[in-house]
Design a protein around this nucleic acid. Structure first.
Lengths: 124, 124
DNA sequence: CCCATTTCTAACAAAATTGTGAGTTGCTAA
DNA sequence: TTAGCAACTCACAATTTTGTTAGAAATGGG
C-alpha cells in the first residue's frame, strides 16, 4: 500500500473493519503480496535486504522496501542498522510476531486440506 | 476480484505464492474486503442476500454478490436456492470452513494483543 | 395493468496495489 | 579516478480491487 485517500469510501470501510475485531486487524496487517513470505523466511533466520532478494526471486526492490517499511511500522519486524560501509541492515521478527507461527501451522494444515477438497470437487 | 489478466507479472506472482504453502493458499481465499465479515456472520446463522445487507451496513450489492460467488466457487460457502417467488436463497458455511473458526479465535486473541502493543508504542 | 419483492447484473468510475527501470548515497579498494 | 557495493528511492505505468447507479427477471396481489 502506498498513499491512501483517507476520505474514500474504500478507506473508510477498511478502517471500520480493521477496528471490528482482532482477526480482521491481523489480516489487515498481513495483507500484501509478499508479506507472509517475508515473515516466513524471517521465521527461519534474520535476513538482510539482498538476502531477501536472493531467497524471494520475483520480488522487486520497490515492493521489498515498501513491505519492510510497513511491517516495521506495524510492529511485525525490527530493523537493525550496523555502522558499517557499505551499509548493513538486518531484519528480524518481533516477539509478538513469533507467536503467530503456531497459528500459521494450523492455518497451513487447514489450507492444504481445503485445497485437496477443492481439487477433488473440480475433477467431477 | 473480477477478471484477471493471466499473463501479468502480478497474476503470475500471485499464483506462484498461492501454491507455495497452505497458509498462503488460505489467505488468498480469504482476501477481499468483506469476506471475513461474511464468514463471521455465517458462523452464527445461515443468511439470505437481504439479511447480509442489513447486518453489514456498508456493503454494496455488487461486492456482496461478487464475494458470495467467489466464495462458493472456492468451497467456502454453499448456496441453497428455494423454488419460491420472489426468489429465496440461503447461504451457509461448508463443513471445511467451520474448521477455520477455532483458528480465528486464536488469531483474534493475537490481533487484539498485538494492537495493544502497537498502541502503547505509538504513545511514546 | 401496475407495483412490490428478492436476488442479482451491467456499465462505468474511482482508488489502491503492484511492477519497471533508472538513479542516489557514502565510502572504500584498486 | 573510477568502479563497486548495499540499501534503498523516485517517477511512472499497468493491473486489480472496490464503489456507484441504474436496472433486469419472475410472479403474485390489488
Amino acid at each position: 500500500m502506498g498513499k491512501r485517500k483517507i476520505t474514500s469510501t474504500n478507506t473508510v470501510n477498511r478502517d471500520y473493519l480493521k477496528n471490528e475485531c482482532g482477526t480482521m486487524y491481523a489480516l489487515t496487517l498481513l495483507a500484501g503480496r509478499w508479506k507472509m513470505t517475508i515473515l516466513h523466511k524471517l521465521s527461519k533466520k534474520d535476513l538482510r535486504f539482498t538476502e531477501f532478494k536472493l531467497c524471494i526471486p520475483n520480488i522487486s526492490d520497490r515492493m521489498l522496501s515498501l513491505h519492510l517499511k510497513e511491517m516495521e511500522k506495524d510492529g511485525l519486524i525490527e530493523r537493525k542498522l550496523y555502522a558499517e560501509v557499505p551499509p548493513k541492515v538486518e531484519y528480524k521478527l518481533t516477539p509478538s510476531t513469533r507467536k503467530l507461527i503456531s497459528i500459521w501451522d494450523r492455518m497451513n494444515v487447514w489450507g492444504n486440506n481445503h485445497r485437496e477438497i477443492q481439487e477433488n470437487n473440480v475433477q467431477r
